Amino acid sequence: MELRKIKHNLGLILVLSLLLMSGCTPFAEHGRGGGANNYLNTRSTMLEHLQPLSSEDGLPFEWELVARHLDMLIMNQAQWCFPATVHQAQQNESRIASELVGGLEVDATNSLIIQRNLLQRLEQQTNEAKRLQKCQPPRESSLESNDLIFAKEIYNLLNSANQFNFNSVELDPKYIINLSVASQLLAKNADYKILITGHSDVFSPDISNNHLARKRAEQVKRYLSIFGLNPNRIHIESISPHPPSLSIPQASEHLSNRRVTIELMNIDQNLTLNHLSGR
Rank of each mutant, 00 (worst) to 15 (best):
A89F: 03
S111T: 09
A89N: 04
L3N: 15
A213R: 00
L276E: 08
K7R: 12
V86R: 01
T25D: 07
R131S: 14
M21T: 13
A217F: 08
F82H: 01
L50H: 12
I154M: 00
S252I: 11
W63I: 02
H8F: 15
L100S: 06
Q163C: 03
N178E: 03
L157K: 05
P52S: 09
S245Q: 11
H8L: 15
F227R: 11
T261W: 03
A217S: 03
S145T: 15
I248L: 14
T25N: 06
E144F: 07
N110A: 04
M1N: 09
D172F: 11
G23E: 05
Y223E: 13
C24T: 09
K152G: 03
A108P: 05
L12D: 08
V66Y: 08
Y155G: 04
Q269C: 04
L18R: 15
F27A: 14
D191Q: 10
A182T: 07
Q219N: 07
P244I: 06
M265Q: 06
N178P: 03
N209T: 11
T261S: 10
E29Y: 08
S141A: 13
R43V: 12
G33E: 08
Q120I: 14
S204W: 02
G11C: 02
L229Y: 01
N110S: 10
A161W: 08
R233P: 06
L148N: 05
R258Q: 12
S160P: 01
A36M: 04
I196N: 02
A84T: 11
K134I: 10
I267F: 02
A129S: 14
S200P: 07
T261D: 09
A28I: 11
T25V: 00
L273A: 02
Q77N: 14
L148A: 02
G198M: 00
E99D: 08
G35I: 00
H242M: 12
E56A: 07
N189M: 05
E218L: 05
I194A: 00
I74T: 04
V66A: 05
L148W: 01
E99I: 10
V202Y: 02
E2I: 02
E105M: 12
P173G: 01
S111E: 11
P205I: 07
A108K: 01
K174P: 11
L255S: 15
M46A: 14
E56R: 11
L271F: 06
S44K: 13
N210R: 03
